[in-house]
Simulated assay, not measured.
Amino acid sequence: MTTETTTAASAVEPTPDGHLPCAACGVAVAVEDAGERIQVGQSSRYRVSPLDAEPSERGKPYRVTEPGDMTRCPSCADRLALARLLVEAHPGAVRRIGSPAVATERVVAALDGLAALGAPLPDAAKLTGAKLGRLVNRLTLHGGIVQWASHRRGQPSPAAEVTTAPWAHVTDNADLRDDYAGYLSDAIGPRPTPPPDGGPRGCLMCGVAQQTGTWEQVNVRASTLGMKQQGDPRVSGYLCTGCGTAVQDVGSVGPTALSRALLAHLGVAHNPLNPIQVDGVEMWFATGRPPTRTRWAHVALDADTRAVLGIE
């Protein structure tokens, strides 16, 4: 699916006398109400000349686009003003985007994308520089594509037609919807996910049911997890980021990695010259308990052990 525009008769009409097209949403704007003029540039297309053509005839354009004036309707002009306000308020974000002029162009394209979707515009007082950067990264490309000026650029007379309603030329905004969903997802942050299907529903070591990190797949003997089963079958499952890091540091799944992961979770620093081994702690999978919302919920350290570790 893509973001597309159309020139269907129901979407456009000739520009009325005394009016200019809005460069964003495409509606007609009375000249007396027009603000800044936007000139949609001139382009030429060249024909292929016969080899025996006269030099003066070679490469002459067969169509020339006459530059046309557009403007912005009041609603679209307000978005341009908002874009300029945001660019002025966030110089750090602007430096990452480009010059102030380039940043303004990209920010207003993103805002136009929101308008084409009917989505709410950001609150200038609450929008941080980081959020502005994410908005631009997500919505500028397809927001610029749906602008009426972009749609008309390259036509023989760019200003000859207007839309019958704001954004009436936008027929498929699937890409914009995806962009907006991504922008909202960025604001929320990564969502916790359970281990992939096909294995136990928690981290084999700590038992946590969901995390925002990457699950690491392991395939070990049941005895490695502290289980005694006939034939010592292999167990395929996943480790959370914390437990996976401990296993990588130690080199294998086992009691040493279990102690390392548990102590790191408790905030006890690892000292390679005097490593601490926590005894009597089972891996979650060996307990047969359901997965938990928090890591190591199946472990209850006694008061003496906590005192030795220096934790409350």
Rank of each mutant, 00 (worst) to 15 (best):
V102I: 15
A103C: 06
A103L: 06
T104I: 10
T104V: 14
T104W: 08
E105I: 03
R106F: 03
R106H: 14
R106D: 10
R106K: 15
V107E: 05
V107G: 02
V107K: 00
V107N: 05
V108Y: 04
V108H: 10
V108C: 08
A109R: 07
A110V: 03
A110D: 02
L111F: 08
L111E: 05
D112Y: 11
G113S: 09
G113E: 00
G113R: 03
L114D: 01
L114R: 09
A115P: 04
A115I: 05
A116Y: 01
A116V: 04
L117I: 07
L117M: 10
G118A: 08
G118P: 08
A119M: 10
L121H: 15
L121P: 04
P122D: 06
P122Q: 06
D123Q: 09
A125K: 14
T128H: 12
G129S: 13
G129W: 10
G129R: 08
K131W: 11
K131P: 00
L132P: 05
L132N: 06
L132Y: 03
L132C: 08
L132K: 04
G133C: 01
R134V: 11
R134K: 12
R134W: 11
R134L: 07
L135Q: 02
L135T: 06
V136A: 02
N137I: 00
N137T: 12
N137Y: 06
R138H: 11
L139E: 02
L141I: 12
G143W: 01
G143P: 02
G143E: 02
G143F: 01
I145N: 01
V146I: 15
Q147M: 07
A149V: 08
A149K: 14
